[in-house]
């Protein structure tokens, strides 16, 4: 069984082929980061316009690299949400119609399920159940994963997603878009003792996240500082420490609350080194294990959509001819996929 996966939910065009025998055969990604950089954020109309130019050449490249012809494909999986509606439509319609003309199944995949299952693309995979921390520019989620499609959202962001808070704080410190990774880099030169930022929502029970206040705190600290390079680095350090510490506190709570001892980290912020280091320490203390997708599968990609589509196809879950994309879609609405 081979599944072609297509991801176009935001500003990355991703395509991959996953096979029951052989695993991931090929994958490719085209990132629009440079296209949107001059606007300081993703411009949805430009994202859609770029997907439609880039998607088909990527499909052709990936099929060829995978040594896969049309007759080898058993299904085409596409991201059906959540995400930008115009961007989603490009991948969903192209993928759905490709499947129809090949006479094979189509599978509508939940983007965040793709992220949840991305660690399954690595040599060492967690068994169910596990706790997933999904942290990206659009999401901050803690999810209890009891099987494919068996998800319980333990915590969610009530305002800015963690990656968004990184990018916005970077912007107010004068770093170029997308500033999150640059801010993390700058934090390495910062003095951790100089500023102490709050750990939002850790002084009360619960697993929800709120990061917009930290951004304001960073802005006020910057205004009151000398506004020089050292202040910038020290604020970056204090901000990153506060965010990472908050996530570690919430992960520890989730582990204690559920009794689960496996943790997976996914989403773009999952590439943050400080976060990985601290969660590694946490899982050592908790006598558990932490799993990560490789960095290129932390961010949006076609491989995770191909894999999630493969798991759904195994369970016989396919999409109708009518294409519907869902910009807002909870993981808890998904059906279990027990093959």
């Amino acid at each position: 069984m081979r599944v072609l996966g297509i991801e176009t939910s935001c500003d990355e065009t991703g395509v991959a082929v996953y096979a029951r025998d052989g695993g991931l055969l090929a994958h490719a990604l085209y990132s629009q980061v440079e296209l949107h950089a001059r606007y300081g954020g993703v411009v949805p109309e430009l994202a859609s316009r770029d997907h439609i130019r880039k998607l088909l050449p990527l499909v052709q490249d990936v099929m060829s690299e995978a040594g896969t012809g049309a007759s080898d494909i058993d299904g085409v999986a596409f991201t059906a949400g959540p995400g930008l509606v115009g961007a989603l439509l490009v991948g969903a319609l192209t993928g759905r119609c490709l499947a129809w003309s090949w006479g094979v199944s189509a599978i509508a995949v939940h983007h965040m399920e793709g992220h949840l299952l991305a660690p399954m693309l690595e040599p060492e995979t967690p068994g169910f159940p596990f706790i997933a921390l999904l942290v990206s520019g659009g999401h901050s989620l803690l999810v209890e994963v009891n099987g494919v499609g068996r998800y319980r959202v333990l915590g969610d962001s009530i305002d800015d997603a963690v990656g968004e808070a990184f990018d916005k704080t970077a912007k107010l410190l004068g770093l170029p878009y997308p500033g999150g990774p640059a801010l993390a880099q700058l934090a390495l030169q910062g003095n951790p003792e100089r500023f102490t930022f709050p750990r939002p929502m850790t002084d009360r029970p619960g697993l929800d996240f709120s990061f917009s206040g930290l951004k304001t705190f960073a802005l006020n600290t910057w205004r009151e500082s000398a506004q020089d390079d050292q202040a910038r680095a020290d604020i970056a350090r204090a901000f990153e420490e506060a965010v990472v510490d908050t996530m570690v506190i919430k992960c520890r709570r989730a582990l204690h609350q559920t009794g689960i001892r496996q943790l997976i980290i996914a989403g773009g912020v999952g590439a943050n080194q400080r976060l990985r280091e601290r969660l590694g320490q946490l899982m050592a203390e908790e006598d558990g294990r932490v799993f990560y997708p490789r960095p290129e599968f932390c961010t949006d990609n076609g491989a995770m959509i191909a894999y999630a589509g493969y798991r759904r196809l195994l369970a016989g879950q396919t999409a109708p001819l009518s294409v519907n994309v869902t910009p807002r879609w909870s993981l808890e609405e998904l059906d279990p996929a027990d093959a």
């Binding site: 998607l55 052709q60 490009v90 319609l93 119609c97 490709l98 003309s101 090949w102």
Partner: peptide, 19 residues
Amino acid sequence: SFTGVRIAASVVQGIALGA
């Protein structure tokens, strides 16, 4: 409509490549 013309183009790309 931007979205409308992209719907047609996406459908056609999928079918044309597939068939």
